[in-house]
C-alpha cells in the first residue's frame, strides 16, 4: 500500500494509538480495516481505508496483521513531513515493512516491525438511525473537551433545535459551552450543523472524548451522532479514502 502523502497514515496512527496500543489490521483487496476496543471495553475504534484511496494498492490474499500501534507511531515519527510511504508484508513473513521516500527521492528509509499474535474481540455494530447528527470543526470539539475536563470527568451533551450544549460539573463547580447552529454557511469547515429528529441528553467520560480528538488532525470537521441509550459515534473522515469512527458507551443511571 503506497501513499504519496505518508503523513495521512501517521495521523491515523496518532489518532488511534492512545486508545488502543495494539490492534489487528484486516487487509483485503478492498483495503485496510481495523476494529479495536480500549482495555476497559468502554470505547471502540473502527477504521476504514479503501484501496482506491492509496496511490497503489495490492493484496493478493486476505491477511490479519497484529501490529503494535505504539511501535508503529515511533517509526512513523521518523518520517519527513512530505515523505511518501509504502507498507508491505511479504507472504509468510512475520514482520511488516515500512518504507519512506523523500519527495525529491534523495532519501529512502526502511523499517521492519515484528507482527504480533493478538486476540481480537469483534463487535457487531448495528446500523443506527441516530436522533441527532452534529457536525462541527474538529478543532472546536478538541477545545471543548479540553475545557470541559477542567470542571469534571463527565460531560453532558444536550441538543436542541438551536444548538448543542456541553456541560460538566465537579468539585470546583460547573461550566458549559453552547454552540449555536451556523445559519449562514460561508466556510463549510467552520460550520456547526445540527440535524435533529429528537432532542437528546447523554453523559460521556471526557477522558475518552479527549482521546478521540487525537484523530482531529485528519479532518477539519468531526461528526457526532447521538441517540438516547446508545453509544456515541464520533467520526473523522480520511480525505477521499475512508474514516475513523470512535464509539463510546454512555454513562447510565445506576
Amino acid at each position: 500500500a503506497r501513499l504519496l502523502h505518508g503523513s495521512i497514515f501517521a495521523k491515523v496512527i496518532e489518532g488511534l494509538r492512545e486508545l488502543v496500543n495494539e490492534a489487528t489490521w484486516e487487509c483485503s483487496g478492498n483495503g485496510i480495516t481495523l476494529q479495536a476496543m480500549d482495555s476497559s471495553h468502554v470505547a471502540l475504534v473502527s477504521l476504514v481505508m479503501r484501496s482506491e484511496g492509496f496511490e497503489s494498492y495490492r493484496c493478493d490474499r486476505n491477511m490479519s496483521l497484529g501490529i503494535s500501534l505504539v511501535s508503529m507511531s515511533k517509526v512513523l515519527k521518523t518520517m519527513g513531513k512530505d515523505d511518501s510511504l509504502t507498507i508491505r508484508v511479504n507472504d509468510d513473513s512475520d514482520s511488516i515493512i515500512i518504507a519512506m521516500e523523500s519527495q525529491n527521492q534523495d532519501k529512502f528509509a526502511d523499517y521492519e516491525l515484528r507482527l504480533m499474535d493478538l486476540d481480537s474481540e469483534h463487535l457487531g455494530i448495528p446500523d443506527t438511525d441516530y436522533s441527532c447528527a452534529i457536525k462541527m470543526p474538529s478543532s472546536e470539539f478538541s477545545r471543548i473537551c479540553r475545557d470541559m475536563s477542567i470542571m469534571g470527568d463527565s460531560v453532558l451533551i444536550c441538543t436542541t433545535k438551536e444548538g448543542v450544549k456541553f456541560s460538566a460539573k465537579g468539585d470546583l463547580g460547573q461550566g458549559s459551552i453552547r454552540l449555536v447552529q451556523t445559519t449562514n454557511i460561508e466556510k463549510e469547515e467552520e460550520a456547526v450543523i445540527i440535524e435533529m429528529k429528537e432532542a437528546v441528553a447523554l453523559t460521556f467520560a471526557v477522558r475518552y472524548l479527549s482521546m478521540f480528538c487525537k484523530a482531529a488532525p485528519l479532518s477539519p470537521q468531526v461528526g457526532l451522532s447521538l441517540s438516547e441509550d446508545t453509544p456515541l459515534m464520533c467520526e473523522f473522515k480520511i480525505a477521499e479514502m475512508g474514516h475513523v469512527r470512535f464509539y463510546l458507551a454512555p454513562k447510565i443511571e445506576d
Partner: peptide, 14 residues
C-alpha cells in the same frame, strides 16, 4: 449517580 457502561451492553459479539 451515573455508571459507566461497557460497549458489550449495546453491541453484539460477532
Amino acid at each position: 449517580s451515573l455508571l459507566q457502561s461497557t460497549l458489550q451492553c449495546f453491541f453484539n459479539q460477532s
